[in-house]
Design a protein around this nucleic acid. Structure first.
Lengths: 343, 343
DNA sequence: TTGCTTTACGAAAACGTGGTAGTGTTGAAA
DNA sequence: TTTCAACACTACCACGTTTTCGTAAAGCAA
């Protein structure tokens, strides 16, 4: 077991100075050819690689970016990570991932842990609890320290930074409109609790689509679910009353649960009940029937977010203390993927 | 925008030496109370936090662990990451994630990138290509440098290190046995190509269960699939011939595809065809019918792997250059989760 | 020989930290 | 008065790099 070799050890072994070794390896003309080649050969033999940590300290750049997300066992978030990782890798960056578990405290802790020099910038999606509390001091702090932050999906207007989102309202509008176009009149919305930003926006789009089509906006048809386990009971109640003939669910887990509940009650999808889900995940593709969804390319979001962050990071290098704050919000396109759960 | 404050800056500002500041903050008795409190107040005000990079360099410990996996948009792997992250977080470690994309080159590149001081140890699952090539020099190299490595799920006997696996053979045996117990005679195995270690082991278990029960082992009933898209065609052909009445699939994607194919052909699951899948994922829970699976707790594997790695890392600190090489292989328990796809 | 330029290398600082060893002052005991 | 300990703090080193500056030796012209 030989620990990794350092410049110092090479220098000692070859009886030259550290600087000579360093320069030889970077092919500096300052060093005579003989010495240079000797050093290079030696370094190659011992498989010398510069120590990243030392480089980070010197350059004040870690070449790694931090990702803070609410969950990782989650189709959408893992596609985003995938997207980030691709771009990061292309640019020689590593990604450090922290899971907030939708907890405010964990989010803060994780950010503090990474903010002390471990990374060059953050890409994050807010935890539910953070959105609920509306407390973003940890993010402000990081930004004030000059560390770039890009938020995606679950964002907030209270923080000025680059953002990557989808037009949740428009996407919801489009989905509901398509249900209306196929003749549905009583469309339910199954959503999360209000403080999750995207839930709110999707609700807005739902409402607008109804009103624009002269349909009544009925509060009773908005079903707010905190936990997917309580979903079934609520749904079956309403289905029993035949209160709606179509449903727009803000995620595919809700959607598949609704379909299963409907099936149990002898209702057929899509004949008796049309279903559209937000977020195109793996369940929608493989459930029976397959589910019509609003696609929301996590990979694209990740790509874009990583590009924006790296651009910021590398811009800072040049301008040095001169970062211009014209933050941009990128909107990723969505489209409706029609499958069997609608007609 | 104020950059993070350092000991040096505090020292300068308060006109004391850097050591005084450092000691004051660590509550050393060497420093008089007055100075100590003054420094602490100042540090608190400017929100001083020691720089992680400098600490890493000094301590030769990064407090982060590297994860190399073939895919991230993958239920099993993401649960493993989740498990690792939990334990890592508890112990004050961060996780750096690299995706090999099942490519040998990427795996090597990623490992090299992280091995130069960025992390204290690896947790990894081999890429398909690496298993195919049988080239593990990059791993040996890392281990020789004294960096602990824990492999999980897709492992190899050619590398000596700690491992976390499930007993693929026994689990497959159990699944097939349960199909036999329910009266099935013609059981097909839908698996991946041979070089993936787990695929091989599961095949072995399948074969043993058949032979132990006096059933013929028929090569024709082993369906090797490289790409899930080709699955449907092959399957429908065999189903058409009524060649089998039960199927054991090595992953849930294969299983759900088989069920859908069977349904299209008018076959009923489980009446006409019983299905068991390896790896309990989200699809099995939500497909129709829900799928009986061999649960393989990724989270537990992640927990265990992280614990083993951190133990190694922190053992090295003490023994220093004295690591004992009695590597262990931890076998995580599996069990059959019976759902609707079997009777 | 003197003075100047090249060549080829070395010393040292810097990045931020933390521990060990050292230093100077004060007060009290011998 | 001398000596010694306690106190309060500073100096210095190491971690591994890169880079700037310095300089000795050699070569060359005058």
């Amino acid at each position: 077991m030989k620990r990794k070799i350092t410049l110092k050890q090479i220098a000692k072994e070859l009886d030259v100075s550290i600087s000579t070794v360093s320069k030889s390896l970077r092919n500096s003309l300052e060093i005579g050819e003989e010495t240079r080649l000797k050093v290079q050969a030696f370094a190659k033999f011992y498989n010398y690689k510069p120590n990243n940590i030392a480089l980070s300290l010197k350059n004040r750049k870690t070449k790694s970016i931090g990702i803070i997300i609410p969950e990782i066992v989650h189709y959408f978030f893992s596609t985003v990570i995938n997207g980030i990782e691709q771009v990061a890798n292309e640019h020689g960056y590593s990604v450090v991932i922290c899971v907030s578990d939708d907890s405010f405290d964990k989010e803060v802790l994780n950010m503090e842990m990474l903010a002390n020099g471990s990374i060059d910038g953050f890409i994050m999606s807010l935890s539910k609890e953070t959105q609920f509390k509306g407390d973003f001091h940890h993010i402000t702090e990081v930004i004030n320290q000059g560390m770039p932050v890009v938020m995606f999906d679950r964002v907030t207007n209270d923080i000025l930074c680059d953002k990557v989102i989808i037009d949740d309202k428009a996407a919801a509008y489009e989905a509901v409109q398509s249900l209306i176009d196929s003749g549905r009149k009583k469309i339910a919305l199954v959503t999360t609790v209000d403080y999750v930003s995207v839930g709110k926006l999707r609700t807005d789009g739902y409402e607008k689509a109804l009103l624009d089509n002269g349909l009544p906006f009925n509060e009773d048809l908005i079903i707010k679910i905190e936990d997917v386990n309580t979903c079934e009971i609520t749904i079956s109640q309403l289905l029993h009353d035949r209160a709606f003939d179509a449903v727009f669910a803000v995620n595919e887990l809700f959607a598949v649960t609704i379909i299963k509940t409907a099936n149990k009650m002898g209702l057929k999808v899509p004949e008796d009940l049309a279903v559209i889900a937000f977020t195109d995940g793996i369940i929608s593709k493989y459930s029976t029937p397959t589910i019509t969804t609003v696609s929301q390319s996590g990979e694209k979001m990740g790509n874009k977010a990583a590009k924006m962050l790296i651009e910021r990071i590398e811009a800072e290098e040049d301008d040095d203390e001169e970062h211009n704050e014209n933050y941009i919000t990128e909107v990723i396109e969505t489209h409706l993927i029609k499958r069997e759960s609608t007609d």
